[in-house]
């Protein structure tokens, strides 16, 4: 019998990792909507992950919530479960499963680069690694994010009569970007779309200082030019029409592909991602000591090919409904 099947079900104990449909028991690696679904009977995860689920879906989005700390081992029958930081967003975790001397690590979404809004990624030695592959092609090499945010800081000096609208995901990317602005010396008010407000407040409550933020309301549109963070969908929608003079930007790992930037009508692309790039993915695979690599969540083929060339036993793990970056 397998310990883990292609749906990420821990077979001996019937516990699913990031299940897409309501189940009895689920481990949630992090609170992004394509990993954390409402409706499970019992969920297990870090305090931050489960709190954000409650914040977004309501207090009754699962029957029972069990918080565990990073490094704290939970035993269910013959399987022991430990969460380790994944460095993706606040509370994000990798899952270590131990069963009869075999160690499996499910990375969830992760990155190894520095991010002061999330606990840093920790490498866990294992026999089998289930790795994400959002940026599983060698064309993806994320540059220094400080250099990227400086593009905006340079632009607001030259284009000081324009609003700079930056498309970001509400959870994780928004707060990391704000923090990067602060770390690069920008301490003026940053304006945020209403959809970002709750999560920013949550980060503040957790002691992550984001500086002066202001939610955009109807009467604050016409005031002086500003940096505005909004969900990417809002930038392309009628919402953005109210800004007459504007420069559109977006922060995402896809922004290194010029054709894609052009097609999305982005003027300042920020190549900033909360996922591992090609170098981080291959380095983690090499360093974790695993001989079996299951590749999921993205461009599996390239990474599987790379692993096979290295003499590792690799295969893609197909899970539907997860392709784009969150």
């Amino acid at each position: 019998m397998h310990l883990l099947d292609y749906r990420l079900n821990i077979v001996p104990i019937n516990v699913f990792i990031d299940p897409q449909y309501p189940v009895e028991k689920a481990i949630i690696t992090h609170a992004h909507a394509d990993h954390a679904k409402p409706g499970h009977k019992k969920v297990l995860g870090t305090k931050e992950t489960l709190e954000i689920m409650k914040l977004r879906y309501g207090k009754t989005c699962a029957g029972e919530f069990q918080y565990i700390n990073y490094g704290q081992k939970i035993q269910i029958d013959d399987v022991s479960i430990t969460l380790y930081p994944a460095g993706h967003i606040i509370g994000s975790s990798q899952v270590l499963l131990e069963y009869k001397n075999h160690k499996i690590v499910v990375t969830g979404d992760y990155k190894t680069k520095k991010d002061t809004t999330a606990t840093s990624f920790e490498l866990v030695k294992c026999n089998t690694l289930v790795t994400e592959a959002t940026f599983g092609l060698p064309i993806f090499k994320h540059p220094d994010p400080n250099k990227e945010v400086r593009k905006i800081l340079d632009s607001i000096k030259i284009n000081n009569d324009k609003d700079h609208l930056i498309g970001v995901y509400a959870l994780g990317k928004a707060q990391r970007l704000i923090k990067l602005f602060r770390e690069n010396g920008f301490d003026e008010t940053i304006f945020i779309h209403g959809a970002l407000n709750k999560i920013c407040n949550y980060y503040e409550d957790k002691g992550i200082n984001l500086g002066k933020l202001k939610m955009l309301t109807k009467d604050s549109f016409d005031i002086e030019p500003k940096i505005i963070l909004a969900p990417p969908s809002a930038l392309k929608d009628r919402w953005s029409r109210r800004f007459k003079k504007k420069i559109i930007s977006q922060a995402s790992g896809w922004m290194n592909i010029k054709q894609r930037v052009k097609q999305s009508l982005i003027e300042i692309p920020l190549v900033i991602s909360d996922h591992a790039d090609w170098n981080e993915l291959t380095k983690t695979i090499s360093n974790c000591g695993a001989e079996n690599i299951w590749v999921t969540h993205g461009r599996e083929e390239g990474l599987v090919h790379w692993c096979t060339r290295k003499g590792l036993n690799a295969k893609p793990l197909s899970i539907k409904g997860r392709d784009e970056e969150i």
Binding site: L137, P138, I139, N256, I257, K258, Q259, R299, E301, G302, H305, W306
Partner: peptide, 20 residues
């Protein structure tokens, strides 16, 4: 093979080569 997969993904030869 990684080149072909990358080219499939990017769709533009100049850009794929410049990235790889």
């Amino acid at each position: 093979i990684l080149f072909d997969l990358s080219y499939d993904y990017v769709g533009d030869m100049a850009e794929t080569i410049s990235l790889l």
